[in-house]
Amino acid sequence: MNIFRLVGDLSHLAALIILLLKIWKSRSCAGVSGKSQIMFAMVYMTRYLDLFTTFVSVYNSVMKVVFLLFSFVTVYLIYFKFKATYDGNHDTFRVEFLVVPVAGLAVLVNHEFSFLEILWTFSIYLESVAILPQLFMISKTGCEAETITSHYLFALGIYRALYIANWIFRYYMEGFFDFIAIVAGCVQTILYCDFFYLYVTKVWKGKRLTIPA
C-alpha cells in the first residue's frame, strides 16, 4: 500500500458515495446513465469473485464488499426505486458495442487462460470504457451536467490516474508490473482527460459543465 493507491481507493469510494447521495437526496437519478452503472456493477462482480478464493487483507475485502454493495444499491435506485426519474431516452449508448469486444479481448489477451483470470481481465477492460455511456449522455443531451455529477466523474476519473502513479511507484519499489492493468488504466484515464480539462476550467470557477458533442 502506498499513498497513491490509498488516495486513489478513497477517491473511488468517494465517487460511489457522491453518486448515491446525489440520487438519494434529490430522490432523482436524472442525468445519470443507468447503463454505465450496470457496467460498473458487472466490473465489480467479475473482479471481486476472488473474495471467495483469496484473502489479501481486511482492508481489501471490506473495500470490495463496499464497492459491490454501493454499486448494487445505485443500480437498484436507478432501475427500481427512482425509475420514474431515470432519463432512459437519453441513455442510448449501445452497451453491446463495448461488452462484446471487451469480452473477446479478455479471452484473447490475458495473463492466464482460466475462468477467474479471464473474468478479472474482462473487468479490467470493461472498467476502462464503462464511463462512456455516461459521458455520451452528457454530450448528447447538450444538457448541462449537474455540478454534483461532475464531482462524481472527477472523483471516479482521478482514482485511476492515481493508480497509474501507484503502478510507477510499485514498479520501482517492488518490481511489480501488471501490463494488462497498466494499459487499461491508461486508456481509462485518457477517456477522462477531456472531462478533467472542462472540470478544472469550468466547475472550479463555479460554472456548470457541458461536454460538446
Binding site: 473482479r47 476472488d50 478464493t53 481489501n60 464497492f67 495473463h111 492466464e112 501507484n166 511489480f176 501490463f179
Partner: peptide, 10 residues
C-alpha cells in the same frame, strides 16, 4: 511479464 497473482489491488 512479472505480475503477481492473486491480484492485490481493487
Amino acid at each position: 511479464l512479472n505480475h503477481f497473482r492473486p491480484h492485490d489491488e481493487l
